[in-house]
């Protein structure tokens, strides 16, 4: 394969992994915006989504039902998680919230490990569409479907947040919770809704991810989770376009580093980028910097 074709292939890979990161990063960024919480357990929702859909598929349900069920269960998970673990701590210190989030993440991973065992399970891919050929490069259906679905969801989400009343309520709460409450916005419901949407997106990310990268295991969500978080930070946490931009940048960086520099040092490089970004421009590419009020 020629160098140009190889590069093109890497580009496709980058877009693929970038789209998955984007879906996860959106959840991170929305939850952070509204609850000022790094929801460490968010990555594990991917895993929950993957397993629920796997159960449904194995039970013989058609793929669309499996997807819908998985999305519903994950949304419910998100809401319950918020109500049980985070809501009681809304006034608590940041460190308490973070520790709780880590706890929830480990709880999910380990309870799934007990239920489904730590062994990887093959995931029956269900995206059955023809391979796309562009010149000498062929793109598998998994890849372009992932890309199209992600982009479509991002557009819908952005429209939702910008245009609908519920979306406006979400923005209002993330701007100033107290003021939003005074304006008659139901803050609790808005936060629940945010968790539900974030988790639904994570479920879809989980399903797409499993289609591309079978088999699946109970810790499958933690690394993409952290990577997506890095993407959200890169783009500016709290910003929806930022999360998408950050995710595609990170996806590209990862693929290119893997292809042209070193796949062994990949994680070091990605984490070093995170540290540099946080140290030099903590607000991210599209984020706003906020000063602490004295």
């Amino acid at each position: 394969m020629s160098g140009a074709n190889l590069f093109f292939l890497q580009l496709i890979n980058g877009l693929n992994i970038g789209s998955i990161y984007a879906l996860i990063a959106l959840g991170y960024t929305m939850v952070y915006g509204i609850a000022k919480l790094i929801n460490f357990a968010h990555g594990d929702i991917i895993m929950v989504g993957a397993y629920i859909s796997l159960l449904c598929l194995n039970a013989g349900l058609p793929w669309y039902l499996a997807c819908i069920l998985s999305i519903l269960v994950c949304s419910l998970f998100g809401i319950v998680m918020e109500k049980l673990a985070y809501k009681p701590l809304r006034k608590a210190s940041r460190i308490s919230l973070l520790i709780t989030a880590i706890g929830v993440s480990y709880l999910l991973e380990n309870s799934f490990q007990l239920i489904f065992s730590a062994n990887p399970k093959p995931y029956p891919g269900f995206i059955d569409l023809p391979t796309l050929k562009i010149g000498a490069v062929s793109i598998s259906a998994n890849y372009y479907v992932t890309f199209i679905v992600s982009v479509a969801l991002m557009i819908i989400l952005n429209l939702f947040v910008q245009k609908t009343n519920m979306g406006k309520a979400m923005r209002a709460v993330s701007e100033d919770e107290g003021a939003a409450r005074l304006m008659g916005i139901n803050v609790d419901n808005t936060i629940s809704l945010t968790f539900a949407i974030g988790s639904a997106l994570a479920a879809i990310a989980g399903i797409l991810y499993s289609n591309c990268y079978s088999p699946i295991n109970p810790t499958m969500g933690s690394l993409p989770g952290i990577k997506a978080f890095i993407a959200a930070v890169l783009g500016g946490i709290g910003s929806i376009p930022g999360a998408v931009l950050g995710a595609f940048i990170l996806g590209m960086i990862e693929t290119m580093v893997k292809a042209y520099i070193s796949s062994q040092l990949l994680d070091s490089i990605v984490f070093a980028i995170l540290i540099l970004m946080l140290a030099l421009k903590p607000a991210g590419i599209l984020g706003k910097s906020v000063k602490e009020k004295v």
Partner: peptide, 28 residues
């Protein structure tokens, strides 16, 4: 050094990243 500029969540993430970098380098 980078951690000084940050607090709370971000600082936690930096230490997490540092730990992972150390481990990744040791692997190599």
């Amino acid at each position: 050094i980078p951690a000084l500029r940050l607090r709370g969540d971000y600082l936690a993430i930096i230490t997490l990243a540092a730990g992972e970098i150390i481990r990744n380098l040791l692997k190599n």
